[in-house]
Simulated assay, not measured.
Amino acid sequence: MGFFAFLILGLIAGAIAKAILPGRQGGGWIITLVLGVVGAILGGLIGGAIFGTGLQEFFSLTTWLLAIGGSIIVLLIYGMITKRSHR
């Protein structure tokens, strides 16, 4: 998968993760892109370690599920960090 395809995957996965999680998450589309890309990387690493698969093809269901799952994890961590800093 190319660099731009990976950025698009991260942006979409981050947006889907924000839509799945309840509540209001801060950040605009740049934060969504960054969290989505980091989440896609994390999802690929977890998928490789646990399931023996990673982010291979853009149109693969496995790729999208791993990227969205990783984005949810990263978004949860980001939410915990930003809530602590507001107190």
Results as ranks from 00 to 15, higher is better:
residue 38 V to E: 03
residue 15 A to F: 09
residue 23 G to F: 02
residue 24 R to H: 11
residue 65 L to M: 13
residue 45 L to R: 06
residue 34 V to T: 14
residue 34 V to S: 08
residue 35 L to G: 08
residue 79 G to I: 02
residue 50 I to K: 08
residue 44 G to I: 02
residue 16 I to N: 06
residue 13 A to N: 04
residue 64 W to V: 08
residue 29 W to V: 15
residue 66 L to Y: 05
residue 64 W to F: 13
residue 82 T to V: 11
residue 23 G to P: 02
residue 24 R to M: 14
residue 6 F to E: 06
residue 70 G to W: 00
residue 38 V to Q: 05
residue 86 H to Q: 10
residue 65 L to I: 14
residue 31 I to D: 15
residue 47 G to Y: 00
residue 66 L to T: 03
residue 13 A to F: 01
residue 11 L to R: 02
residue 74 V to Q: 08
residue 1 M to C: 08
residue 46 I to V: 12
residue 54 G to M: 08
residue 39 G to E: 03
residue 57 E to S: 15
residue 17 A to N: 03
residue 61 L to D: 07
residue 48 G to I: 01
residue 23 G to A: 12
residue 81 I to C: 09
residue 59 F to N: 10
residue 6 F to V: 05
residue 4 F to E: 10
residue 65 L to Y: 07
residue 2 G to D: 14
residue 79 G to M: 03
residue 13 A to T: 03
residue 25 Q to A: 09
residue 69 G to V: 04
residue 29 W to A: 13
residue 3 F to P: 03
residue 85 S to C: 11
residue 54 G to A: 07
residue 12 I to A: 15
residue 61 L to V: 11
residue 76 L to M: 08
residue 20 I to G: 07
residue 8 I to A: 11
residue 18 K to S: 11
residue 10 G to S: 07
residue 25 Q to T: 13
residue 34 V to W: 09
residue 25 Q to W: 03
residue 12 I to K: 04
residue 73 I to V: 09
residue 63 T to V: 10
residue 47 G to M: 00
residue 56 Q to P: 00
residue 67 A to H: 02
residue 17 A to F: 01
residue 64 W to I: 12
residue 63 T to F: 01
residue 66 L to E: 04
residue 43 G to V: 02
residue 24 R to Y: 13
residue 27 G to L: 04
residue 70 G to A: 07
residue 33 L to T: 13
residue 47 G to N: 01
residue 12 I to C: 14
residue 36 G to M: 01
residue 17 A to Y: 01
residue 46 I to Y: 06
residue 58 F to D: 13
residue 21 L to K: 04
residue 29 W to S: 09
residue 70 G to S: 07
residue 67 A to V: 02
residue 48 G to N: 12
residue 27 G to R: 06
residue 76 L to H: 02
residue 56 Q to H: 14
residue 71 S to K: 03
residue 85 S to L: 11
residue 84 R to G: 14
residue 72 I to Y: 00
residue 62 T to F: 00
residue 35 L to D: 15
residue 74 V to R: 02
residue 19 A to K: 05
residue 70 G to I: 00
residue 68 I to Y: 00
residue 58 F to N: 11
residue 71 S to G: 14
residue 44 G to W: 00
residue 4 F to Y: 13
residue 35 L to C: 09
residue 46 I to E: 06
residue 38 V to A: 11
residue 12 I to N: 04
residue 82 T to L: 09
residue 37 V to P: 00
residue 78 Y to L: 12
residue 78 Y to N: 12
residue 76 L to G: 05
residue 27 G to M: 05
residue 43 G to N: 05
residue 75 L to F: 07
residue 35 L to V: 15
residue 56 Q to G: 11
residue 70 G to P: 00
residue 71 S to C: 13
